[in-house]
Write a protein that binds this DNA or RNA. Structure first.
Lengths: 205, 205
DNA sequence: GCCTGAAAATGAACATTGTTCAAGAAGAAT
DNA sequence: ATTCTTCTTGAACAATGTTCATTTTCAGGC
């Protein structure tokens, strides 16, 4: 046997199907919500047996977590793509990017934040770390805007600011408990950030 | 038969059990999380049949929603109890009160915000309204602090501010994705509010 | 106290859905 | 072609929400 990983026909098919399973599951979550996701629906859509889902992901949570993992990655990618030339504009861009992502992928984001593990099984460390990373995106621009502040304070501030944005958006987008009208959300978010920055001593432009 | 509601023995027992069912369900949610709540566990703990749970609440969601309804009421009571003599102190008190409630009843609050209806059944209007009410508690003190602002703006601002606090707390309390260390949360929240108020032109004390 | 009709309680049976695993199919190695 | 490993399958099982025919309870009238 070759030491080098060979791309056997079997492996290719297996990977292919793994990707398909994830894609189908994602679409089902995105369109009908996490609660409506059923193993049998996924298996049928992919035209494979129920057992194969288990072979691939261990259990149903495994599939959900895989989708959630990719959701954080997509979110991070979107946040990272925000131009960083101007720190002030970057902060607004980050809030906008999050709002955009939350609008387009409401159910996927909900799945990420609302999914609970069975029993008391621990939440996967890697997803934790990825979410933490995503919530730290405001750190860099804030460091540039507040060069004289204590680094620890800025680190905390950046996560709080993004958590605040998250709270405003996630509640604002719940059609059910509209804390803020959607159409105004964007401008209001920008205003909110400006106000907070002003409180930090950064002049409005 | 009397027109006046008579308190028959039957009615008393029924009400008694209804209260017990709710209490048990609440404790189970509070200690083991919404996902671990099972009809059979509740029925067994109350020593009644499964069917009685259905007679009382229609379906399982009905029981959960009843618990959630009482959770909003408890939250609102706690927020309303915050002294309102000094608007600035009141704002801090409201954030503290929410933090306290979220700390003591983490799972109940999660149940309120994370529970999704089966299929596409609509979320009960009354709970929506109650949550909206709870999220408007910052309105009164902000009106006093910003007497010259547009009333509509203040209404939006108050909901955004509370949503922000909600976001910071709910993420901060997730042991799993600690955006902000719990012990610092309290002081940091106060600081966050002060900064935002400063941005609104209200001098720090 | 007994009878009777309405209301409630019961829990076995059913429906849905996550999970397991023995048997078989498919492919790789020789 | 044969063997050996690995993967796939889906029937069976387990857990859990839901229903409903039957039984029990009990208020009201006699």
């Amino acid at each position: 046997m070759n030491i080098v990983q060979e791309e056997s026909r079997r492996d290719r098919k297996k990977l292919q199907r793994r990707l398909l399973l994830i894609e189908i599951a994602r679409q089902l979550i995105a369109t009908k919500g996490l609660r409506s996701l059923k193993v049998r629906d996924v298996a049928e859509a992919v035209e494979c047996s129920i057992g194969s889902v288990y072979n691939e992901f261990g259990d149903f949570d495994g599939l959900i977590l895989t989708v959630n993992r990719e959701t954080v990655l997509a979110l991070t990618a979107r946040l990272t793509a925000v131009p960083s030339d101007d720190p002030l504009r970057q902060l607004h861009g980050l809030a906008d990017a999050y709002l955009g992502f939350a609008t387009e992928h409401a159910n996927l984001l909900r799945s990420l934040f609302e999914h609970r593990m069975e029993d008391d099984r621990p939440f996967p460390e890697d997803i934790l770390a990825m979410v933490m990373d995503a919530f730290a995106v405001m750190h860099a621009p804030l460091v540039r805007l507040l060069p004289d502040h204590d680094p620890g304070d800025v680190a905390l501030l950046s996560r709080m600011m993004f958590s605040a944005v998250h709270g405003i958006i996630s509640l604002g987008l719940e059609e059910r408990m509209v804390a803020v009208p959607p159409e105004r959300l964007r401008e209001r978010l920008a205003h909110f950030i400006d106000t907070h920055l002003a409180g930090l001593g950064i002049p409005r432009r």
